[in-house]
Design a protein around this nucleic acid. Sequence first.
DNA 1: ACATAGAGGACCGGAGAGGTCCTGTAAATA
DNA 2: TATTTACAGGACCTCTCCGGTCCTCTATGT
Lengths: 146, 146
Amino acid sequence: MLRLSKLADYGVVLMAELARDPECGSHNARELAELTRLPFPMVGKVLKRLTRDGLLVSQRGIHGGYALARPAEQIPVSKVISALEGPVALTACGVAPGSCEHEPSCHVRTPWEYINRAITETLDRVTVADLVRPASAIAFAELGVR
Amino acid sequence: MLRLSKLADYGVVLMAELARDPECGSHNARELAELTRLPFPMVGKVLKRLTRDGLLVSQRGIHGGYALARPAEQIPVSKVISALEGPVALTACGVAPGSCEHEPSCHVRTPWEYINRAITETLDRVTVADLVRPASAIAFAELGVR
DNA sequence: ACATAGAGGACCGGAGAGGTCCTGTAAATA
DNA sequence: TATTTACAGGACCTCTCCGGTCCTCTATGT
Ligand code: SF4
Ligand code: SF4
C-alpha cells in the first residue's frame, strides 16, 4: 500500500516540473496540467495549497501563473509533502502529543520518535532540485540516500 | 497526518509487548489486549495476520497463545508493517511497476525509487528488540537512526 | 470594459480503514 | 469421550476521508 496521498504525489510532480527549466519562470495551471497529464482541477487545487504554504509564488491576471518561491535547491521534499498532507509522521503520537488515546500506557512511543525523526530527515535532505537532476544515483548516494 | 494504519501501529505495539519479557513465551490474545489496553477484537485480528505471515507462532487449545517466531533481534519493524498493510512504499509506482497510470509520462519516478529504498532500509535496520531496550538513544544512534 | 487566471471554498461519491462478530477447528483436561 | 478454552478465517457494518469537480470572487493586463 502507498502511504503518500495522491495530493502530495501530484505536488512533488508539479514542483519538479516547475524546476525543470530553471529560466521559464511562469507556468499557468492549465499548462502544467498538460505537461504532467494530471487532471486540471487537481492541479489547480495542489498549486493553490503550495502557494498558500509559501512554496510557490503566484501571479494573477492575463499572463498569470506559478513559479518557485525559492531556488529548487532550497526546497526540501518534506516541505512539499507537509504542505499538502500535514506533518510527516508515521504514528499518531508523532504529529502532536496527546493525539493518541493509548499514549499513557504505550511503551513504544519513544522509539517511534527516533524512527519518525530519521524518516523526516531523509525527506529533508532531498530537495526538489535533486528530483530533476539526471544521474540521480550519484547525487542520492552523496546525500546518504542509497 | 499519520501515514501508518492503526492496524500496523497495533502490530508494532503487540510485537514489542511480546518481546518485553524474553522468557514468558506464551501470551494469549486476551492477556495482550489487557496489557496494551487495545480493543480485544482488534488484537485478535492483528495477531492472526502476524501469525499467517510467519512473524508469530501460535498454539491453540486451553493453554494456547502467541509467541515470537524468532528472536526479537531478527524481526525488523519493516516486516511487521508490511505484514499488516502491504509493502512499504510512499508512491504507487513503488509497490509494483504499472500500478500508476501516470508512470509513462512521469519524470520523478526514478528519484522516488531511491527515497523509497532509503526509508525501507531505515525500517529494516530497526528491530523489535530495539523497541524494548531502555536507553534507546544510543542504540538508535548506532543504527544511523538519529 | 473585458477577458484571463488565481483564491477560496462548498460539494459529492466511493473506497477503504477501523471495528465487531460468528462459525469452525485444534488442544488440553477431567 | 465430553467439555472447555483459544486460535483461524472469514463476513459484515459504519463512518471517515480521499480523490475529484465546480462555482463564485478577486486581481491583472490589454
Ligand atoms: S502512543 Fe503508542 S499506540 Fe499511540 S500512536 Fe504512538 S506508538 Fe501508536
Ligand atoms: S509514476 Fe509518478 S505520478 Fe505515478 S506514483 Fe510514481 S511518482 Fe507518482
